[in-house]
């Protein structure tokens, strides 16, 4: 008892400081660093670019429209065979600047300078000139964190817009992904355009995602394709956030 008492007398400050440090770290972990991102946002606000002045990405916008056009053409053909199709109404998006990148190299994330105060919620999907970029995974009042489709943890259900062949896509690095098909026999060619599939639960169907770069039909258990994203993910400065699809 006496030795314990002496040890405490000598080390109490250290014990308290260690406890305090680990306690604070734990709180920050549980709140997903919300306080840090809020401070970060308020500090970097003067340096952020104004989304309205961005004219450089018009080229990417044209590409997105071409992708959408080819998707609409196929969809239109299908629609002619169907009756009683209810048109989806498109909700307005929130334009948000990208203010930060992922805090670690193993994750492909970006931080946006808009949060719950501006109407962004967890599960919102994020578009950029060129196509789909990712999904909001956490929000604070003024920032939100987006898991990019280029992250290995994000899996997106996609289909080839020409032949409607489905599969899912896994990110690899900032501009590439791998798509695994569900079918063995394929009608896919390099250059084919990919859109989010109609069975995807996280994203609405028909959003442009990427282009088939090369095919590996011998791959088992399922054929694979290397995908190049249409959105220039590593050069983006602003994005548009749309509310989640589920009602």
């Amino acid at each position: 008892m006496f030795t314990l008492r002496r040890w405490w007398d000598r080390h109490w400050l250290q014990v308290v400081l260690v406890g305090l440090t680990l306690g604070t770290a734990w709180v920050i972990e549980q709140t997903q660093g919300a306080a840090i991102f809020e401070v970060y946002q308020s500090l970097t606000r003067p340096f952020q670019s104004n989304p309205n002045q961005q004219e450089k990405l018009i080229n990417a916008r044209v590409q997105e429209m071409l992708v959408q056009l080819s998707q609409l053409q196929t969809e239109n053909q299908k629609l002619k065979q169907l009756l009683g199709y209810v048109a989806e109404r498109k909700q307005p998006g929130i334009v948000a600047p990208i203010v930060g990148h992922s805090a670690d190299q193993w994750w492909q994330e970006v931080t946006l300078g808009r949060g719950t105060k501006h109407g962004i919620q967890v599960g919102s999907y994020v578009m950029a000139p060129g196509g789909l970029v990712g999904r909001v995974v956490s929000v604070t009042p003024h920032t939100s964190r987006v898991l990019l489709i280029s992250d290995a943890a994000s899996r997106v259900g996609v289909m080839v817009s020409r032949s409607h062949q489905m599969g899912y896509m896994r990110g690899q690095d900032s501009h590439k992904a791998v798509m695994q098909f569900f079918d063995k026999v394929l009608d896919v060619r390099p250059g084919d355009v990919l859109v989010t599939s109609s069975v995807s639960q996280l994203f609405p169907s028909g959003l442009p995602v990427g282009r088939v770069e090369s095919l590996n039909l011998q791959k088992s258990p399922a054929p694979e394709a290397a995908i190049e994203f249409t959105a220039p993910i590593s050069y983006l400065e602003w994005v548009v956030v749309y509310p989640p699809t589920s009602e």
Partner: peptide, 13 residues
Amino acid sequence: LALGMIQDGMTSP
């Protein structure tokens, strides 16, 4: 440990 926990919060644990 402390800094690792904070970084976990900022990315993914």
